[in-house]
Amino acid sequence: MALPKHSGWSIERIVPLLGGSVAGASLLLGRNRSPKWRGLTAFVSANLVLYGVAGWCPMSLFLQKLGVPRTAACPVKA
């Protein structure tokens, strides 16, 4: 069974990708530069939880204003 190919970038894909990237980068900065960077990790984590529970976060609202679609169309095989 093959995995389905994604059909473009949507808010549902971009928000977790950006959140994970920023959280990882801030953890590295917190280890190598200053522990204060870990506050950014906490902020990103809180926003990802908000997005999971409520379905929106500040980044999703910003992406929506930029015209990014909320969901990508998923082709269904008959």
Rank of each mutant, 00 (worst) to 15 (best):
E12S: 01
C74L: 15
L17S: 09
Y51E: 11
R13W: 06
G67V: 05
G8F: 07
P75V: 04
G55I: 01
L63K: 02
G55P: 08
L40Q: 00
R70C: 02
L18S: 10
P69L: 09
H6C: 08
L66C: 08
L61T: 06
C57D: 12
V68T: 08
K77A: 13
S34T: 00
E12F: 05
W56H: 15
L63H: 00
S60T: 10
L61V: 10
W9Q: 12
R33Q: 11
G8W: 08
G19K: 07
R38F: 07
S60G: 10
R38K: 14
A54F: 13
R31G: 09
G24R: 05
S45L: 14
G55S: 02
V44F: 02
S21G: 01
W56M: 13
K36S: 03
K65T: 15
L50A: 13
L28D: 00
A2N: 14
G30L: 02
L27S: 01
V76W: 13
S60K: 13
M59T: 07
T71Y: 13
R13C: 05
V53G: 03
G19F: 02
L29I: 00
A2R: 15
C57S: 03
L3T: 07
N47T: 01
A54W: 13
L63G: 00
P69R: 14
P75W: 05
A46Q: 08
P69F: 06
L3I: 09
K5Q: 11
M59R: 02
L29E: 07
G8I: 04
H6T: 06
I14D: 09
A72H: 11
Y51I: 03
F62G: 07
R70G: 01
A23G: 00
V53Q: 08
V49E: 13
F62S: 11
L28N: 01
C57T: 00
A42S: 12
A72R: 15
A2D: 15
G52D: 10
L40W: 01
P16Y: 11
R33S: 06
L18N: 13
V68W: 13
F62W: 14
A78W: 12
V15F: 08
M1R: 12
T71R: 15
P35V: 04
V49D: 10
A73D: 06
G39S: 03
Y51K: 10
V44W: 02
A23V: 01
S10C: 13
S45P: 03
G20Q: 04
A46Y: 01
A73C: 02
A78G: 12
P58K: 06
S26W: 05
L66N: 01
R13K: 14
R13Y: 05
T41G: 02
G67C: 08
